[in-house]
């Protein structure tokens, strides 16, 4: 299964019959009490734990914003992702790019062809007039489990089998 499934938590319940190798990342975008709020840019990618090419699972940005300042202008604010491979990606990319998300919980499937081994899952968020945060957690395929929590721009990031 090459494509990434983005579903709301409600819809996710209908997906638990996915193949045994499947894994899910759940990302929480926190609701913030700030005067000027813009939905964050978010990138999700996995890297082999021993170093190597990053594989982008999702990048949420102002896909449709064009004109003099297209939405891609601020992709480099996701600076870790940009450096680790975002800059090599031709966007929009099918199954990877998507619109920015409102606060809430979002799940996406890990690629089914991820070979067994140790990886690092990275979730990076950058918000206009706001902060930037990178949350990382170890990802072991096929024993997919774990969680980490951001302090400001990201809430819980959870890995689960299925």
């Amino acid at each position: 299964m090459r494509s990434i499934l983005l579903t709301s938590p409600v819809l996710l319940a209908g997906l638990v019959t996915a193949p045994a190798m499947a894994g899910t990342v759940t990302i929480t975008i926190p609701r913030l009490g700030v005067a000027e709020y813009h939905r964050p840019y978010v990138a999700v990618w996995v890297e082999p734990a021993g170093g190597g090419a990053a594989r982008t699972l999702a990048v949420w940005y102002a896909v449709k914003k064009g004109g003099n300042e297209p939405g891609t202008k601020w992709l480099s604010d996701l600076r870790a992702w940009w450096r680790k491979g975002g800059r090599s990606l031709s966007l929009p990319a099918n199954g990877v790019s998507g619109a920015t998300r409102a606060p809430g919980q979002y799940s996406l499937q890990l690629p089914a062809d991820l070979k067994p081994g140790a990886y690092v899952l990275n979730v990076e968020a950058a918000r206009e007039t706001g902060g930037r945060e990178l949350v990382t957690l170890p990802l072991n395929v096929p024993k997919i489990a774990g969680s980490a929590t951001g302090k400001a721009e990201l809430g819980a990031v959870t890995l689960s089998a299925r």
Binding site: N68, E69, P70, G71, T72, K73, W74, L75, S76, R79, W82, R83, G86, R87
Partner: peptide
């Protein structure tokens, strides 16, 4: 020093 997008 690092720019993204199509109109930098």
């Amino acid at each position: 020093t690092v720019f993204s997008g199509t109109n930098s």
